[in-house]
């Protein structure tokens, strides 16, 4: 049994909180550059120019890419041959979030009560943690701060099986079209297809952790991703909703078997500040 002190997880989360909010990942920068080359409209190019310059300025100045430094979403894949020592895992993750958001001058964007919104938790805790037990003796920590503007445009449907593939593509394109400029397009779309009500949402969120530009290894899922991307970009919403051919940079679909009566579909909308970082312990 390999032992890992949870203090290492705290240190890792604190570092990822700071860095992920400042450094736009290379895959996202590359996708924005490619979009800039494709666009012909003046405003679309202006928006993408500002986003590319913003990524440079954030790295240079250490200011966060976006003022919405998000809710701290942490996925942990815990090897079942690991024994965590030194304390409670959720507390260790929250300690990391607390430290990272304080020391990194990140915004604290969490209210304690969803209805009585007068009290901010003050340190951006608690983190939303998704724990999965996997084979082996390693711990994988994914950190993905999630902004409110794009999260608000996410949706979940329980479609009928008869609505099928075309119904799924239509639902995604209609939702993104209706969201217009509000979620900060160009977007990255995480889609969860199948499973159950709650699993489809988790699949959609997890799909956002995949690097941009890498299609699903399953050929028919990769084809579905292409068709969804084409349908979404055909809306013409474009960067910030001001028109263009790039409404989404990528669509990632994660699929799971489901009940004979059901066709769960979840869409997690991610803005262009697609912050994600992974560390293997």
């Amino acid at each position: 049994m390999r032992e890992i002190d949870v203090g290492r997880i705290t240190d890792t989360v604190a570092d990822m909180a700071r860095r992920s909010n400042i450094e736009l990942p290379d895959d996202v920068v590359a996708a924005l550059r490619a979009a800039r080359e494709r666009e012909t409209l003046r405003i679309a190019r202006e928006v993408l120019d500002q986003l590319l310059l913003n990524a440079e300025r954030a790295r240079e100045t250490g200011l966060p890419l976006c003022q919405d430094t998000g809710v701290a979403v942490v996925f942990i894949d815990l090897g079942q041959d690991v024994h965590l020592t030194g304390g409670d895992l959720q507390a260790a993750v929250d300690d990391g979030v607390r430290r990272g958001y304080q020391e990194g001058y990140l915004r604290k964007s969490v209210v304690r009560d969803p209805l009585d919104r007068s009290t901010n938790t003050g340190d951006n805790t608690p983190a939303v943690m998704h724990l999965r037990l996997v084979a082996g003796d390693r711990v994988t920590v994914h950190f993905a701060p999630k902004g409110g503007g794009s999260e608000n445009m996410s949706a979940l449907w329980m479609l009928t099986p008869a609505q099928g593939r075309s119904g799924v593509v239509e639902a995604i394109a209609a939702q993104v079209g209706a969201a217009g400029g509000m979620p900060c397009p160009p977007l990255v779309l995480g889609v969860g297809l199948g499973g159950t009500f709650e699993m489809s949402a988790l699949l959609a969120k997890r799909a956002l952790l995949r690097p941009l530009g890498g299609p699903s290894p399953i050929p028919e899922v990769a084809a579905l991703e292409r068709d969804m991307l084409d349908a979404v970009n055909a809306t013409g919403v474009g960067p910030m909703g001001l028109g263009g051919v790039t409404t989404a940079l990528a669509v990632h679909v994660e699929r799971h078997p489901c009940h004979i009566a059901s066709l769960p579909l979840a869409l997690n909308v991610q803005c262009h500040a697609a912050r994600h970082m992974t560390v293997l312990l």
Partner: peptide, 13 residues
Amino acid sequence: FVAVGGAGALLAE
């Protein structure tokens, strides 16, 4: 007016 969402580092300058 629309400012470019997610360009917070640039706009801060």
